[in-house]
Amino acid sequence: MKFSKTLITGLILMIGVNAFAQKKAERFEKLQIEMFPKAKDGYKQVYIQLPIEKNENDLKVELFVGMEKMLDCNNYFLMGDMKNQDLQGWGYNYYEVESKGETAGTLMGCLDKKQTKKFVSLKPEIVRYNSKLPLVFYVPKDIEVRYRVLRPDNTMKKAVQK
């Protein structure tokens, strides 16, 4: 009797875990990236696969292309350029990043001369959310791509009239 309860409990747990795993797997549509060109020497190809969401038209993706560096108290940005390229014959686009990893920033006097690890990036770019297409990037080997999903505020606000 005790064995059969344990067996039934185990089976229920396995079914639950399996259902959860299938639900998790369904949130992503299998994307093809083979049609994109190979990365040139000194570069790597990275991509973002966004999960399927309800009301994707309400969402945006903020892209950050940069690197971590030891920096002082000034505000820095990565020097370089991110170009949106068209994948000929497919109607898809991808991003090519040109940067030597150099930074520029403010010239505040940092009294403590203390340096901390900071993520410094090119100017962030906002693109529409689309789980059906990958966001493909070609970046120098020492640069990474980060992102965050921007969701709308549920409350609509009204501008103030003067």
Rank of each mutant, 00 (worst) to 15 (best):
V145C: 01
V61I: 10
D72N: 13
S4M: 08
M35C: 06
A159P: 04
K100G: 13
I15T: 09
K117G: 03
C110H: 04
I48P: 00
R148Q: 15
M156G: 05
P134M: 05
K54R: 12
Y92R: 08
T103E: 03
R27I: 14
A25S: 15
L87N: 04
I8G: 02
M82F: 09
Y95Q: 01
F119K: 01
R27E: 12
D72M: 06
T116I: 14
N84R: 12
E62P: 06
L107I: 14
D72L: 03
K2W: 08
G91W: 07
K40C: 07
Y94I: 00
A21H: 04
Q49H: 04
N84Y: 14
I33K: 00
V97Q: 00
E125Q: 14
N57G: 09
T155W: 09
G16K: 12
N84Q: 13
M1A: 07
Q49A: 04
G42E: 05
K54F: 09
K40M: 12
S131L: 02
T106S: 14
A19C: 06
G101F: 05
E56T: 02
M156R: 09
K132D: 00
N93D: 03
D153W: 09
I52A: 08
D81M: 10
K158V: 13
V46W: 01
R128I: 11
E96P: 00
R27Q: 15
I143L: 15
I8K: 08
Q45Y: 02
P37N: 09
Y76V: 06
V61E: 00
K100T: 07
L63M: 09
L63G: 01
P37S: 12
K60H: 05
Y129H: 00
L7K: 04
K24A: 15
G91H: 08
Y138F: 15
V127P: 05
F28T: 00
K83N: 10
T9A: 14
Y94V: 00
Y147W: 15
T106D: 10
S4K: 12
I143H: 03
N55R: 09
M14L: 14
N55H: 13
F3T: 10
G109Q: 13
G91C: 12
W90G: 05
V160D: 08
L7Y: 01
K132R: 11
V120W: 05
A159H: 11
G80W: 03
G101P: 06
W90K: 14
K123C: 10
Y43D: 01
G80E: 02
K132W: 02
I52V: 12
K83E: 14
M1Q: 05
D58C: 07
K162C: 05
K123D: 10
R128A: 07
K24P: 06
E26I: 04
N84L: 15
Y95H: 06
T6A: 15
N57R: 09
L13A: 15
